[in-house]
Amino acid sequence: MAGTSPALVAGREADAAAAAAVKALQAAGEHAEARERYAELVARHQRRASRIAYHYLRDGAEADEAVQDAFVKAYQHLGSFREELPFDVWFTRILINGCLDRIKARTRRERWLVPMTGRAGTSPDGGPAERDMTERVPAGGLSPEAQLLGRERRREIAAALAKLPERQRSVFVLSHVEGRTSREVSALTGLNESTVRVHLFRAIRKLRALLAADARTAVGEQKGKRRVTS
């Protein structure tokens, strides 16, 4: 996990200044300028927000909508933002709540829908993880075999991540993928710092077990194929 680097501190100071400026412009009724200043904040946090939303929702289009909604909501409620908390933490909290609401809505929807076997975007274990994995073309410059292996590895990781309980997954993504400290993850998720660490430890242990099991299964399948062909 990454600590609080000087670049991060500088970024947060810039965020706080921009947020304060937007708030003042909103209060003065200068909405066009407020939007311009807010666009700076959007540009700075957009990629990270999209990553988080994508890891929560596992669907590009839905993650896109969730990010948009979160930025719009943050702009509307910027008046309630207090500088004692970093802007990115406050904003990420809004984003995560939005993502969780969407997951709940999706679960309710799926309860009433008949699952289609072989439907695009549904993994064998029921999650929508596989669609984006298999359809996506990895960065150029790799051989087809390397691309295939990379795709397969990502599929395995995504499937294993999808099997984690929600809290463990959130903590793992925020602390390891997004490089948040335990304190920040605690502020984002509302969990105790020590609980965050416990969840992180359990997430790693479970991922290790799941991916090792996948690797064993893959090795077993390869051996089986060899026997059949020989």
Binding site: A39, A43, R47, R51, Y54, D64, M133, A158, V173, V177
Partner: peptide
């Protein structure tokens, strides 16, 4: 996981997202 998300949200998509916001 980071690479996967970054591929899903390429530069053009982020620009379109910002314009939409």
């Amino acid at each position: 996981l980071r690479d996967e998300a970054d591929e899903a949200f390429a530069g053009e998509r982020l620009a379109a997202q910002q314009a939409q916001i």
